[in-house]
Amino acid sequence: MIYNQENCIQKENQKIIFKSTKGDEMEKLTIASYLMFIISVLGIFYALIYNPASWIVYGISIVLIPLFILSLGLITMARSKKDEQDERTNEPFIGY
């Protein structure tokens, strides 16, 4: 993480902590996952229904089957509750 004013909060005693950005990142990830899922499903259905040239089917298979599996996983994976999200990002200082 880069130290800058956007993601740091400087307290009175000069302790710097990171702002929790996990919520925004998860939202972006969810949107991206749904987009990838729709694109991969559409591509696979196109290849199934229209039966294009072999090289097109091979290209669709090599790119879109892995994308489909990844996007399905990202959509179905469990997510932490909102009140627990901060716990996941800000670890307590436990000393060395």
Partner: peptide, 26 residues
Amino acid sequence: FFVKESSFPRTAAMPFYVAIASMLCA
């Protein structure tokens, strides 16, 4: 594992870290 809550390490080189797993499948 597919449906578990996932963590993405802060030290990971994103999005390469995810793309390389896709590459293995591809």
